[in-house]
């Protein structure tokens, strides 16, 4: 009897979670990167909160994007190296579901901590307290979209010898809309405006990502395994 696709996805997710907690350094690294980048701005730009506040959306989102690019390298790399991805592809089960599960777990392990660190960093940059909820929400949704987009490029660069640079080059153009709407949402939150419209756009990108990214990633991984 064949295991149903949802059970397969759940097993893949549980396996990744267990692995992540046995080796937490991979999770902490992108988070630390994000925190450090954001901390450097008050030191280099100006310690004046009103001016930092103007730069905050940019700092937060550039930091988040670079940090998620760093984390993307871990998405498929190990599984590709030790032959696990090959076994996934040969399991007769839906590779799309498995990669979707992996991507969601990846977001849970890297994107969610990033979003949680967002308000802390934002506070440091002089973002007023009422805006912090919006910062968190935008980062959570934005990082999910980034993970989904990144899954495609991570799949495509599997076969490349030095995939890291290529991965960034491939992901960055696709990530620009997330960056634009995410920064816009953060800006609006800081100014006290409604963040609904950029959040809808981020949501639309995420929905589009959920629909197509796992399919594209599965196709990319099959090519990458050749």
């Amino acid at each position: 009897m064949k295991t149903p696709a949802v059970t397969v996805a759940w097993l893949v997710a549980r396996r990744d979670l267990r692995l992540a907690f046995r080796k937490p350094s991979q999770l902490i690294q992108p988070l630390m990167f994000f925190m450090i980048v954001a901390t450097l701005f008050p030191l280099t730009l100006t310690p004046e909160l009103s001016r930092l506040r103007d730069a905050a959306p940019g700092v937060l989102w550039v930091g988040a994007l670079l940090s998620s690019l760093l984390a993307l390298e871990f998405l498929f790399r190990e599984d590709a190296q030790d032959g696990t991805l090959e076994q996934f592809a040969l399991s007769g089960q839906s590779l799309t579901w498995m990669l979707f599960a992996k991507t969601c777990t990846h977001w849970l392990l890297t994107g969610v901590p990033l979003a949680l660190a967002g308000p802390v960093v934002a506070g440091m940059l002089g973002v007023p307290r009422p805006a912090l909820g919006g910062v968190l929400a935008a980062l959570a949704l934005g990082s999910f979209a980034l993970s989904l987009i990144g899954a495609i490029s991570a799949g495509l660069t599997l076969g490349a010898r030095r995939g890291g640079v290529l991965l960034s080059l491939l992901t960055l153009p696709l990530a620009v809309p997330v960056l634009v709407f995410g920064a816009d949402a953060t800006q609006r939150a800081i100014l006290g405006d409604g963040i609904a419209s950029p959040m809808y756009m981020l949501g639309a990108i995420a929905v589009f990502g959920i629909t197509f990214a796992p399919l594209a990633a599965a196709a990319a991984v099959r090519i990458g395994l050749e």
């Binding site: 396996r15 267990r18 692995l19 046995r22 080796k23 030790d82 032959g83 696990t84 090959e86 076994q87």
Partner: peptide, 8 residues
């Protein structure tokens, strides 16, 4: 590759 995870 035996496709085994070192941390499991």
């Amino acid at each position: 590759e035996p496709a085994l995870k070192g941390d499991l």
